[in-house]
Amino acid sequence: VTLFVALYDYEARTEDDLSFHKGEKFQILNSSEGDWWEARSLTTGETGYIPSNYAAPV
């Protein structure tokens, strides 16, 4: 399992994006889409796309 942590807060701009807060942890589901990764929040259980430059490996 690849775990990442949010470096900044992010507010979803589309219904496919995932809103999150700094410090929140994610499981990365798909990182082959370039700058946007499909991720599941370990806090909320929700799935959506996150900007890859807002996350770092745990």
Rank of each mutant, 00 (worst) to 15 (best):
T14S: 14
A56L: 08
A6L: 03
F4G: 04
H21I: 12
G48P: 00
Y8F: 12
I50C: 02
F26L: 12
A56I: 13
D35F: 13
W36E: 03
T2C: 15
E15M: 11
D9F: 04
Y54A: 15
E24H: 07
G34A: 13
I50Y: 02
R40V: 11
Y10F: 10
I50L: 04
N30F: 07
F20E: 00
T2A: 11
D17L: 09
E38L: 15
K25W: 14
R40D: 01
V1C: 15
E33Y: 11
P57D: 05
P51H: 07
I28G: 00
E33G: 14
G23T: 01
E46H: 12
T2I: 14
W36A: 05
A12D: 01
G45M: 07
A12V: 02
L42T: 06
Y54M: 10
E46N: 12
F4N: 02
A6M: 05
Y10R: 03
N30T: 08
F26Y: 01
G34T: 11
S32Q: 12
L29F: 08
E38V: 15
E11H: 09
E33C: 15
Q27V: 15
V5S: 03
T44H: 03
A6V: 04
D35S: 10
K25I: 15
A6C: 04
W37C: 04
W36V: 07
S52H: 08
Y49L: 14
G34W: 09
W37Q: 04
K25L: 15
R13E: 10
F4L: 08
L18P: 01
S52A: 15
Y49S: 06
Q27K: 07
H21R: 14
L7Y: 03
E11V: 14
G45V: 01
A39G: 05
Y10W: 10
L29W: 06
F4H: 07
D9W: 09
V1N: 14
F26S: 00
P51M: 06
L7M: 08
E15I: 11
S41T: 04
E15V: 11
S19V: 03
S41Q: 05
V5N: 02
F20Y: 01
R13V: 13
P57M: 08
E38D: 04
K25G: 05
A39N: 00
I28F: 03
T44W: 02
S52W: 11
T2K: 12
A55N: 02
N30Q: 09
Y54N: 03
E38N: 07
S32P: 11
A56E: 11
Y8Q: 09
W37E: 00
P57T: 05
F4P: 01
E38T: 11
Y54V: 06
E33A: 13
L18Q: 01
P51Q: 05
D9Y: 04
S19W: 03
A12T: 03
Y10D: 00
D35E: 13
P57H: 06
W37A: 03
T14H: 15
D9V: 04
G45R: 03
T44L: 01
Q27T: 10
T47N: 05
F4C: 09
W36S: 06
I50H: 00
P51Y: 07
Y10C: 04
A39Y: 01
K25T: 11
D9E: 06
L7F: 04
S32A: 12
W37D: 00
A55V: 15
Y49K: 14
D9C: 10
G23E: 03
N53K: 12
D9M: 03
P57K: 07
V1T: 13
N30S: 12
G48W: 03
L42N: 04
R13W: 07
K25E: 09
G23V: 00
T2F: 11
P51D: 05
I28Q: 00
S52G: 08
E11M: 10
L42S: 04
P57N: 05
A55M: 15
V5E: 11
D35H: 09
G48D: 00
N53S: 13
A12H: 05
A56K: 10
S41F: 04
R40T: 12
D9P: 06
A55F: 15
F26Q: 00
V58W: 11
W37P: 00
P51N: 09
V1H: 13
L18I: 10
L18Y: 04
E15R: 10
R40N: 03
I50W: 00
T14L: 09
T43K: 13
E15L: 12
Y54L: 11
T2S: 10
P57I: 08
W37R: 02
L7T: 04
Y10A: 01
V58N: 06
T43C: 14
R13I: 11
V5Y: 12
L3I: 15
T14P: 02
Y49G: 03
T47D: 04
T2G: 12
T44K: 03
N30L: 06
H21V: 14
V1W: 13
Y49Q: 08
T43A: 11
N53M: 11
K22H: 06
A6E: 02
S41G: 02
L3Q: 08
D16S: 15
E38F: 15
K25V: 15
A6I: 03
S41R: 13
E15D: 13
W37S: 02
R13T: 13
Q27L: 14
S31F: 15
L3N: 06
T43S: 12
G48Q: 00
L3D: 07
E46R: 15
S19K: 04
E24L: 03
T44C: 04
D35A: 10
Y10N: 02
D17K: 14
T47K: 10
R13K: 13
R40L: 12
Y8H: 08
E46D: 09
V5P: 01
D16E: 13
E46Y: 09
F4I: 08
V5D: 03
L7V: 06
L29D: 05
D35R: 08
A55C: 15
Y49H: 08
T2H: 11
N53P: 06
V58R: 03
E33T: 12
D17I: 11
Y10K: 01
N30Y: 07
G23R: 01
R13C: 14
D35N: 09
P57W: 05
V1S: 13
P57Y: 05
D17G: 15
Q27S: 07
Y54T: 05
T43D: 10
P51F: 05
I50D: 00
Y10M: 02
P51C: 10
A55R: 01
R40S: 05
D16Y: 15
Y54P: 02
F26R: 00
S19G: 07
T44P: 01
A56F: 08
E33P: 12
H21N: 10
V58G: 05
H21S: 13
F20Q: 00
T47M: 09
A56W: 08
S41A: 06
I28W: 02
E11R: 08
A56D: 06
R40G: 01
T47C: 10
Y8T: 06
T43P: 02
G45W: 07
G34V: 11
H21W: 07
R13G: 08
F4K: 03
S41M: 07
T43H: 11
T43Y: 09
A39D: 00
V1P: 12
A39R: 00
F20D: 00
E15W: 09
K22E: 07
I50E: 00
S19A: 06
S52L: 06
S41K: 14
P51I: 03
E38G: 04
Y8E: 08
D9N: 07
F26G: 01
D16G: 15
I50V: 06
D16T: 15
Y10Q: 01
W36D: 02
L7P: 02
L42V: 09
E33K: 14
L7S: 03
Y8A: 09
R13M: 12
S41H: 07
S32N: 11
V5R: 04
K25D: 01
L29T: 06
E15Q: 12
T2Y: 11
G45Y: 06
L18H: 02
E11F: 09
L18G: 01
K25R: 12
Q27A: 09
F20H: 00
F26K: 00
S32M: 13
L29I: 12
E24Q: 08
E11W: 08
G34P: 14
K22N: 03
S19T: 09
S32Y: 10
N53I: 09
N30I: 07
E46I: 11
W37L: 11
Y8W: 10
E38C: 15
W36L: 08
T44D: 02
Y49P: 01
L3F: 12
W36T: 06
G23S: 02
V5Q: 08
